[in-house]
Simulated scan of single mutants.
Amino acid sequence: MFLELISFLTQFDAGFNVLQYLTVRAVLAMLAALFISLTLGHFFIARLQQHQIGQVIRPDGPESHFSKAGTPTMGGIMILFSFIGSILIWGDWHNSYLWIIIVTALIFGGIGFVDDYLKIKYKSSDGLSSKQKYLAQSIGAIIIGLWLVNDTHQPIPTDLLIPFFKDWTIPLGTLGLLVFSYFVIVGSSNAVNLTDGLDGLAIMPVVLISGALAIFAYISGNYNFSNYLNMPFMPDTAEIFVICAALIGAGLGFLWFNTYPAEIFMGDVGSLSLGAILAVIAIIVRQEILLFIMGGVFVAETLSVIIQVGWYKRTQKRIFLMAPLHHHFEKMGMSEPKIIVRFWMMTFILVLISLASIKIR
């Protein structure tokens, strides 16, 4: 939005050109999202409390969580509002990736909103059934996948990049990319959703991974850097740098209120949409495998649920004291802040390993 105004102002003073630079817009997008979150945070929490929109705790969950009952939830609305608002201000409206990501946020945020609404309405930890949620996510993932592979204005390569190897790629083709994108989007959305069980546990990894994806987007969108680092040059992905910066700002703004002890939870409206946004960004910059590596905490949480359910159905016994994995550590007596910070540290390490792939190839 501001790009049009800035272009007009440059007619009077060339100094306004600096506001069109990618790095400047990224910084401003991050600050704008952070400012919106911090400014609206207390107002938003107060309104949620006024309308008694509070978290419903699983009756079979850790005992320490019972005190969290009634804590305002659906904070993902605040994240998406600050995120979308920021990229609408500082983003390039002519870049179709911006609109793809906005639609992704709205579709998966909408699914999460319905799930949260049903939980609150019926005072139950059960919202949408797993089949209903999976069907809705599948429809959303197919819509976004079709948009990505059929975007003739800004087409993305269909080869799957293998990190840490110089010239090793796997040709997927258009249909293969569509199928692969479907699993990446649905998988990432559910993985972040499963991880969102402790104060600040999910949002900080989202911020860290967004920062890494921003670096890959910047490199891919710059001919000199991409050529030097032997990465595919995709000029339109440069705008993803601004989008990731806005996501970081929105995430940090939410963490201000979500850090232990949390004043607000993001709810499914936040976790489902954030997971899908990360997936779409990773697909656009062709770093899906690195998303899997960087999101190792999300992967571990998801696998713990799959293993627990599968093993219990087979043997009527449990491998973990409770799934997802963070609840297992709680049951072992580990304090919530210690679990949270250690999971953050693991994500930080995995992000650094992924960033090392830029030169190790």
Rank of each mutant, 00 (worst) to 15 (best):
G91A: 08
L194P: 00
V299Q: 11
D268I: 04
Q52P: 03
L22F: 10
L247C: 05
D126N: 15
N224I: 12
F2E: 06
I170V: 10
V56M: 13
A141N: 13
G253R: 04
M346F: 15
N17W: 14
T259Y: 11
F83Q: 13
K317E: 04
F164D: 01
D115N: 13
G70A: 09
I248V: 08
W90K: 01
D199W: 10
L201T: 02
H328I: 03
A276G: 00
T169A: 05
S210N: 01
L5E: 08
L5S: 12
Q11W: 12
E63S: 15
I293N: 12
W256G: 04
Y312W: 15
G109D: 01
I277T: 11
P261R: 12
A141R: 11
H42W: 14
F44Y: 02
Q132P: 05
G333R: 09
F241R: 05
I170M: 08
I219A: 09
W93S: 13
K68V: 05
I144M: 03
I36N: 01
L98A: 08
I358F: 14
I281V: 14
G75P: 06
W90Y: 13
M204Q: 07
L148R: 02
I243G: 04
E263V: 13
I339E: 11
M332W: 10
I289S: 04
G127T: 07
M30D: 01
Q132T: 01
F183A: 12
M334R: 13
I84N: 10
A46T: 06
G211N: 00
S37C: 07
Y312T: 14
A69V: 05
Q287G: 06
M322E: 06
S125N: 13
G310V: 03
A356V: 15
W99A: 15
D196A: 04
M30I: 05
E63K: 14
A300D: 13
V309P: 09
Q137M: 08
F320A: 03
L40K: 07
I84Y: 14
F183D: 11
M345Q: 08
Y182A: 02
L290Q: 07
M204S: 03
L303D: 00
E301G: 10
I203H: 12
W99T: 05
K133S: 08
F16W: 14
Y260Q: 05
G310T: 02
A136M: 05
A246W: 06
E330F: 13
M30R: 02
I307K: 02
T158W: 03
F83E: 08
S138I: 09
E336N: 06
D13E: 10
Q308E: 10
L175C: 04
D60R: 04
S130V: 10
I162K: 09
L172Q: 13
A262C: 00
L3R: 15
I36W: 09
P171E: 02
V269L: 05
P261E: 06
T315K: 13
T169E: 00
T315F: 12
Y223F: 05
L118W: 15
A356I: 10
F16D: 12
I360C: 15
F348L: 08
I36C: 03
P337H: 07
V179Y: 14
V341S: 11
V242L: 03
H326W: 14
Q50C: 15
